[in-house]
């Protein structure tokens, strides 16, 4: 299970969102309720907002396991921001059964 940098310890309860693939982050979003997504967003968004300077000095080259988990956690926030900030539902409206699957993505 992911361990975040010490300064982000209060986000540990959300560590199951630290998923390295967009495929899994999107799947978790779709499988969540709006209440779960909102709770996640409300806890994680303020930490992204106050961590911009920190993230800017985390080089991807040789990134630590903790920072890598943090990166995946914030990547999930990116995925979750759409239902919370725009759609008011986990799925993209009017997207029906269509799926756009990631087949190549950077790691990290």
């Amino acid at each position: 299970m992911a361990t975040l940098p010490a300064a982000f310890a209060e986000l540990e309860p959300f560590a199951d969102w630290a998923l390295p693939s967009e495929h899994d982050r999107y799947a978790k979003r779709i499988a969540s309720t709006m209440h779960q997504l909102q709770t996640f967003y409300d806890a994680v968004f303020p930490r992204l907002e106050d961590s911009v300077d920190y993230l800017r000095q985390v080089a991807l080259d040789g990134i630590s396991d903790e920072d890598r988990s943090l990166l995946w956690l914030f990547s999930s926030l990116v995925t979750v921001s759409f239902p919370v900030e725009v759609w008011s539902q986990p799925r993209v409206p009017d997207s029906g059964a269509s799926a756009l699957d990631v087949v190549v993505e950077p790691v990290p």
């Binding site: 992204l48 990166l71 914030f74 997207s95």
Partner: peptide, 23 residues
């Protein structure tokens, strides 16, 4: 990208593309 912030900036551009593409 060189750092984690730039990586997240690109992630947002990619995910936004996906949300539009689904529609």
């Amino acid at each position: 990208p060189e750092n984690a912030y730039e990586r997240l900036q690109q992630e947002l551009a990619a995910v936004t593309f996906k949300e539009y593409g689904l529609q």
